[in-house]
């Protein structure tokens, strides 16, 4: 039925079709359907915002007020002590030096991992899109399907490999692992981006005598800023949020923020300080949240990239 009507409209195009906006039929401004629509959207927005609000409120209350048992109530007396404690003196099992240790560890893990993984993946993507060689597509296919293999399957052999390399339980170890597991999605991202650039560009540079690296560094990289931004956003949030690789490969000294947060909340003995826990949670979420809110559409492009096949 739809196919027929589709052909009918094609045969006799209505005069308005050229400027017709996409999507559903526009509705009048205020009518019951419209009110329903916004109500549903608002209710959903409340569900999504609620945890952020509760975290905020809890982190600004004192413990006696929390024990009154109303998580939605704003604090009667605002205190920043939980924030200070979470950052500076909260106990993570053995030490009581707060989350700041984890924060700096996460910084030390994230920055080199992001640089390493993006450097390697961008060169990979370039080779795969412009310098195809025999078997390159096979490797790429394995790489993409490899990204679906649960990490647990490769964990133990990777522990052996990193131990043999002498980097198990160190910053280098966890950076190495992040570089490996960032490769599939980033390579896909760069390959698709470079493949979509006009081929004439590449050919002109070759005619001018530029080689493999010359074309990459002087022609492609300068005009690929958007995709590098997408890649950085993807990797910063991804690596900052990692827990599994940090807890296994980084070593106790270098535990990232997520691991420390989990230790603060789930392994402390005695009185549970919910306000400190929530301040710590907000602090841990702050970096990816900031990246998310400031990057806007770039983040969306990053998360959607995985679904757009090349």
């Amino acid at each position: 039925m739809t196919v027929e009507s589709y052909e009918i409209t094609r045969a006799k195009p209505s005069k308005s079709s050229a400027k017709e906006p996409s999507g559903a039929k526009p509705l009048r401004r205020i009518n019951p359907t419209r009110i329903m629509l916004y109500s549903v959207l608002l209710v959903a927005a409340v569900y999504y915002l609620l945890p952020l609000y509760v975290m905020m409120m809890t982190s600004l209350k004192g413990l006696p007020e929390i024990r009154l048992g109303n998580i939605f109530a704003p604090p009667m007396e605002v205190t920043f002590a939980p924030w200070a404690k979470a950052w500076d003196t909260a106990c993570t099992g053995l030490y009581c030096e707060g989350l700041k240790v984890g924060f700096w560890n996460s910084v030390r893990i994230t920055i080199p991992s992001v640089i390493m993984s993006i450097t390697i993946a961008s060169v990979n993507g370039y080779a795969l899109s412009n310098w195809k060689f025999k078997g390159s597509e096979v490797f790429f296919t394995i790489l993409i399907f490899g990204s679906f293999i649960p990490y647990q399957v490769m964990l133990y052999p990777l522990v052996i490999v990193t131990r043999e390399l002498g980097i198990f339980g160190s910053l280098q170890g966890v950076i190495f692992i992040h570089t490996i597991f960032g490769m599939p999605i980033l390579t896909l991202l760069f390959r698709n981006y470079f493949a979509a650039l006009p081929e004439e560009l590449f050919k002109a540079a070759r005619v001018d005598g530029a080689g493999f690296w010359g074309i990459f560094l002087k022609v492609l990289v300068p005009m690929s800023a958007p995709i590098f931004v997408v890649a950085v956003i993807l990797q910063v949030t991804g690596i900052w949020n990692d827990f599994l690789f940090g807890v296994i490969f980084a070593g106790v000294k270098n535990f990232p923020m997520t691991v420390q947060l989990n230790n603060i909340v789930n392994t402390t003995q005695g009185v549970k300080e919910y306000n400190v826990n929530m301040a710590a949670t907000l602090l841990t979420g702050a970096v990816p949240l900031a990246v998310y809110f400031f990057s806007g559409r770039f983040f969306v492009r990053g998360v959607a990239a995985g679904a757009v096949k090349g």
Partner: peptide
């Protein structure tokens, strides 16, 4: 609206788990 619906996806599962454990 889109920003509100997508922001939890930027957070780690650790953060998600701890918030909901509390709520």
């Amino acid at each position: 609206f889109r920003t509100i619906y997508l922001y939890p996806f930027a957070l780690s599962f650790i953060v998600t788990g701890i918030v909901w454990q509390w709520i």
